[in-house]
Nucleic acid binder design. Structure first.
Lengths: 363, 363
DNA sequence: TTGTAAGCGTTATCAC
DNA sequence: GTGATAACGCTTACAA
């Protein structure tokens, strides 16, 4: 380290010239030199709640401003073992189909003094590579909206990196989780639709590997069986609009008739299904067939759709996730894994018939 | 630093136990101890293209794997002055209304070995706070999709942090920029619509402060005037669906008649406008009135809308942005500011009449 | 309250 | 090729 000789304070302009000439960055040492104090005094001035005299503080701050000094986070984190960075791991598709979630998460983290390091993946398989990077960057924690194996979770524990799983159901894993109870929501949805007289259900689900999509399907199928309704065919889509279009055509072919109601794994597919019904097949929605989505994204409530759907309390979930994460970072050690489960909110919309018709006609 | 005594190599298990007991992280020093080499040898093994013998390399890697060692990026960046982190500054609204842009950018950066540190802002005013953070984190560069003052740009230059402005028009500023030529696209759009016989234009723009929105308006107004068409009233919305609905009502009130065509600053507003026309006002689109959007987002091409709009080559723009940024980081010094301008692609859709009717009737 | 000095975990520059 | 050793810019005992 450079000697911390305490000279009577060099002029700001002089020091600025030196820095510029040497082509280096402004350090706390430069500030100390100009302010005429020790380097550690400068450091203390930038630490909230440290003991510094008013006089010292002012001289340091003046010098710091003059030099446009800003502490180097890398150097700080090296010793504090905190980066104030939280990684968010998210798939390309959840970003496209539910951008609000990422936006909310990022905002809630920012509000708590954390920054979001974004990792997007095309395929869930890229997780290995991403985790290697995550370890390198020494992030304070990871918020994952992606599939994780027990081995991955175990590695988080070993490395003592806090992990919160967002909106994924990691069955039987002891891991912090914030999610919406898709299973229960789907069950309740089926109950309500059945009460309105719907009997033949058909399902357009998300990708088979996706845990959220799976839960939604499971809940619906579970309740359909429980109620003794006719078996519901399932079409596995990939969350995009065209899956909804293709799904409806396929399901009708399989059943050999128009189903009473189609439950879709997200809104984009539901809107595809509505459009296919109305525009390709001239089926009136909801009088001839009901369609239900999931997520209540922006466009789903626009006049051309007014989709019947389930809204996830994204804002609350983001708050819970950020709180949980910050708690874990503070705790800095063994804490019981916590699961915060939220209920989905039903959005009535205009694409499902929710009351029994005057006279229920048997087909 | 700890002494680098060269003992004959300690056993992996033993060293693991020590680390666990001391509760510290695995360092290159631990790996060196187990592999029976110097710490600097370990460092070299993790630097691509460094000169190490095969034998040393293998011993080091074996020890590293056994200890699950991963280099600490903070320590590395302290000396290399590279963090491999690029900040992306983006407003809440562009994230919601154009999530694909962020997704593409993040992906292109990842592909080039850079990570994206995400900064979202609610209001463009938060930029000050964000920049302070950006300097702290010593990011290698910043991609900004937000308004910047000349003072901000100057600070980037002073701090020698590469800056690429994405899809914003910073008039008269010497700054790297990747954007779509909104002005020209709007002019061309008006020309085409005028050729199809539209005379009375009306405009629903984005927020007045937003530079992209402003360019779109300017281009349209410019060409409308040039063609000697009737003055077009402007409604300033805020990029959301309801602005489109409100905008149409307001514009019709102002003109005292239904305009021939409404040009909207983005797709969400255009879809609002289409819905308001069809469902509130019973105006047929496009036979009685044309509506044009901008961006060609996901939902705009769905059957219920099939919006006439302008597509920005987002993928290409993201590639250009990432390339430009990486080039700047490599160059590490004075480079001429570069502006890469892309042309918007016209999407015909079904909400605008694009050919002159058989007989053009004067009102 | 303040200054001294010892790290944090790397990379880079040397001799050997 | 390899190992000492000096940075990088900061925080934090500890001594004064």
């Amino acid at each position: 380290m450079r000697p911390t000789t305490l000279q009577p304070a060099i002029s700001l302009a002089e020091q600025k010239a030196i820095i510029l000439q040497e082509g280096r960055r402004v350090t706390s040492y430069d500030v100390a030199l100009v302010a005429g104090v020790s380097q550690s005094a400068v450091s203390r001035c930038f630490k909230p709640g440290a003991s510094v005299s008013k006089k010292t503080y002012e001289r340091v701050m003046k010098a710091a401003e003059g030099l446009e000094y800003i502490p180097n986070a890398a150097a700080r984190s090296l010793i504090t073992r905190r980066t104030n960075i939280v990684a968010i791991v998210v798939s390309h598709s959840s970003m496209l189909y539910n951008p609000a979630a990422l936006s909310e998460l990022s905002q809630q983290l920012n509000r708590r003094g954390k920054r979001a390091l974004l990792f997007t993946m095309q395929h869930e398989g890229e997780i290995e590579q991403i985790l290697t990077d995550v370890w390198q960057f020494q992030v304070d924690g990871v918020i994952a909206a992606s599939k994780l194996t027990p081995a991955h979770v175990e590695e988080f524990r070993r490395r003592q990196v806090p992990l919160v799983v967002f909106n994924r159901h990691l069955r039987d894993m002891d891991v912090n989780t914030v999610l919406c109870d898709q299973f229960e929501a789907s069950r309740a949805l089926v109950s309500r639709l059945a009460a309105a007289g719907h009997r033949q259900f058909a399902l357009i689900g998300g990708p088979e590997q996706n845990s959220v999509a799976r839960e939604r399907l499971r809940g619906a199928l579970d309740r359909i069986e429980e109620l003794g309704l006719p078996a519901a065919p399932v079409f596995y889509g990939c969350f995009d609009y065209s899956s909804g279009v293709a799904g409806l055509h396929e399901l009708i072919a399989r059943i050999g008739a128009v189903p009473d109601v189609v439950i879709c794994g997200n809104d984009a597919m539901a809107m595809g299904c509505v459009d296919a019904a109305r525009q390709h097949l001239h089926i009136d929605v909801p009088s001839q067939m009901s369609v239900v989505g999931c997520d209540a994204v922006e466009g789903s409530q626009w006049l051309s759709y007014e989709l019947t759907t389930l809204r996830q309390p994204l804002h609350k979930m983001a708050i819970a996730t950020a709180d949980l994460m910050c708690g874990l970072i503070e705790a800095d050690g063994e804490v019981e894994a916590e699961k915060r489960v939220f209920a989905a909110q039903f959005v009535e919309g205009e694409t499902a018939r929710l009351h029994a018709p005057r006279a229920v006609l048997a087909a």
